[in-house]
């Protein structure tokens, strides 16, 4: 989901400037967390360093609590927040492909940009691979159109899926995150 930082109809220059500032901030945070290094990212899959899980889950929980309470206090219109549509089958398949690529390359699109920007050669090659893959997928997408648009559920959110209040889902995700952090710390201590 993406929340509207600027009002609808804002000038293109303002939108691009906001994207630039946010992008630089995001990249800075990723680099400061050490996620520009493929070794650090891959270490997660060997249960040696779970920084990726901790950093990204922290970001998710922070954003989720921020969106919930900003909306609750009337400072953010949730109806203006874009929710991408859910396609269960294609997104499961895409997730498996993405995960495989993440393990092989050691970088995801965001961390590949950070890696390349900090002069790491592997980051440059992963970015080249990403753009080549996007180009090739664009060429053959029509052949997979039926699958690509299958199992559609529209804009689907967890409170609707589980038929529970928004706040209950927020609390459940917080508990899940705290449990994940505790388990991750224990695993990391065991690996040392």
């Amino acid at each position: 989901m993406s929340a509207p930082l600027l009002p609808e109809g804002a000038p293109l220059a303002a939108t691009l400037a906001a994207a630039l500032v946010l992008g630089v901030g995001f990249g800075f945070a990723l680099e400061r967390a050490g996620l520009g290094s493929a070794r650090k990212v891959v270490a997660q899959f060997y249960w040696r360093d779970l920084a990726v899980l901790k950093v990204l889950f922290s970001a998710l929980v922070t954003a989720m609590l921020g969106v919930f309470w900003l909306s609750r206090f009337g400072l953010l219109d949730l109806a203006a927040v874009h929710v991408p549509e859910t396609f269960v089958g294609p997104q499961l398949a895409g997730g498996v492909l993405f995960g495989a690529g993440l393990i092989v390359a050691g970088l995801c699109p965001g961390t590949a940009c950070v890696s390349a920007a900090t002069g790491r050669i592997d980051g440059v090659f992963v970015l080249l691979g990403i753009f080549s893959g996007m180009f090739l997928t664009g060429l053959i997408l029509r052949k997979f159109e039926r699958f690509y648009t299958s199992t559609a559920h529209g804009a689907w959110i967890l409170p609707e899926l589980f038929d529970v209040p928004y706040g209950a889902v927020v609390a459940a995700v917080v508990v899940l995150a705290l449990a994940a952090f505790a388990v991750a710390e224990r695993i990391e201590r065991g690996a040392r």
């Binding site: 609590l65 609750r72 009337g74």
Partner: peptide, 21 residues
């Protein structure tokens, strides 16, 4: 930090809706 996160998340469960009252 963990306790504060838990408390803020727990309050969300009490609040229920994300819409302002």
């Amino acid at each position: 930090l963990a306790f504060a996160t838990f408390a803020i998340g727990g309050l969300a469960a009490v609040a229920g809706s994300s819409q302002p009252p």
